[in-house]
Design a binder for these strands. Structure first.
Lengths: 226, 226
DNA sequence: TGGTTCCGATACTCGATAGTACCGTATATA
DNA sequence: TATATACGGTACTATCGAGTATCGGAACCA
């Protein structure tokens, strides 16, 4: 409630935060920053399971097999820990497989539907749900979450569509930006509110029943293979 | 966290809840049930402003100008109060204006875009956001929220599309159920995560850039009037 | 080796809030 | 009028969790 969030520190690395850059003679044991990612991952897990308000620092510490004080040595508050965790989620995303290039927009989009990415997406949406209550207090968090969770998928869709435009498969008049957001938005709503499964069948029906028609490719214009 | 939610009572009206139906001789002052809606509305307001976890019973009582004990006489817990508030939101929805019938699907959909409904929708989405953290603990709440907030809009879209099918304007092969969810889902995502304005312009662009193309009506096939 | 800082762990403070108890008052039945 | 209950308000209890303090031990540096 009375929480204030001014600035995430976002990985300042070796020296501590409020030191005036040079006044630290670096004595004694060094902070083990290899543990940061483990702690942030633990925070994301707890966040997905219990939501921001349900999440306690003790849970995160226990999950990361770390002491509570260790967390407070690295992040000044629960809020900043979460903000950092969400921000780092984006960085730590492996670029993943290269974009498919099957020659048709439908082929590319269907090729993007992989069990791994479905499950990955569901986990990230749980994190997003857990963040919702905090977003009204820290709106910049919405940007971070969007950048880490949904924007990458939308960017892929945009690129696939632009290539389709370039090869003349679809019209250049398409509202690429909006259409690229269709499946992320609908998958988010279906997962979080309808709580219905987002499986391959649903995603294919989105491609064939909404996206392809929207770009002017009639549903029955493409290959039969799922 | 340790909250349990078994059953919402959902407006049992005159007699109290746990009375075995007839053993109440009805003595003394009667409960003033005309205040129930005021209390539930206050709960929805606070819910939209602060979210479930940030909401306190004292806030709701103060907003409704009622005593905290009064709330606990009527609902056994904060959770059940909220569940009841969301459930009653659906009931208390005035049917609103009759469906537009302009003769074209585009005309009908554009006619549905009214300042009042935009603002109403935004308020309801704030409530939905406030509920998110609780939904994982009480999944039936997701159904109630969906039924009260998004489903009515989707139902309208379905009906407009079915009429368009009946009059031969669009093909009967359209995936009506899925397409009817496009604008609710995208509006929800845009409001809650992107925090961008959902204004008339955006809604029109959804109709012209996504929905009409998806049902096979080329974007430039319709009336010029916005 | 000795001083310094980090580590995990635990105990503590302190504010906030769900839920209860009780007050004086208002309103209903008998 | 007497009784019983609801009312708005307030004080209280009990719990929970953020953040702090401190511990013995380990790692690092001079």
């Amino acid at each position: 409630m009375t929480e204030r969030v001014e600035n995430a520190m976002t990985q300042l690395a070796p020296q501590d935060v409020d030191e005036t850059t040079d006044s630290a003679p670096k004595l004694g044991r060094k902070r083990d920053h290899t543990r940061d990612p483990e702690i942030l991952d633990a925070a994301l897990e707890v966040l997905a399971e219990t939501g921001y308000d349900g999440m306690t620092i003790d849970m995160v510490a226990a999950r990361a097999k770390a002491g509570k004080a260790t967390l407070y040595r690295r992040w000044p508050s629960k809020a900043e820990l979460v903000i950092d965790a969400v921000a780092c989620m984006k960085k730590n995303m492996h670029g993943g497989d290269p974009l498919p290039d099957t020659g048709t927009l439908r082929g590319d989009m269907i090729a993007m539907i992989k069990p791994h990415s479905i499950e990955d997406s569901e986990k990230k949406l749980q994190i997003m749900a857990g963040l919702m209550s905090m977003i009204s207090r820290a709106p910049e968090l919405a940007d971070a979450a969007n950048a880490a969770i949904v924007e990458p998928r939308a960017a892929i869709n945009r690129q696939l569509m632009r290539r389709a435009i370039d090869r003349g498969e679809i019209s250049a008049d398409c509202d690429v930006d909006t259409i690229a957001m269709i499946s992320p938005s609908m998958v988010a709503y279906r997962t979080l509110m309808l709580r219905k499964p987002v499986d391959r069948e649903y995603l294919v029906s989105l491609v064939d029943g909404v996206i392809l028609p929207a770009v002017g490719l009639g549903a029955r214009a493409s290959a039969p293979t799922g």
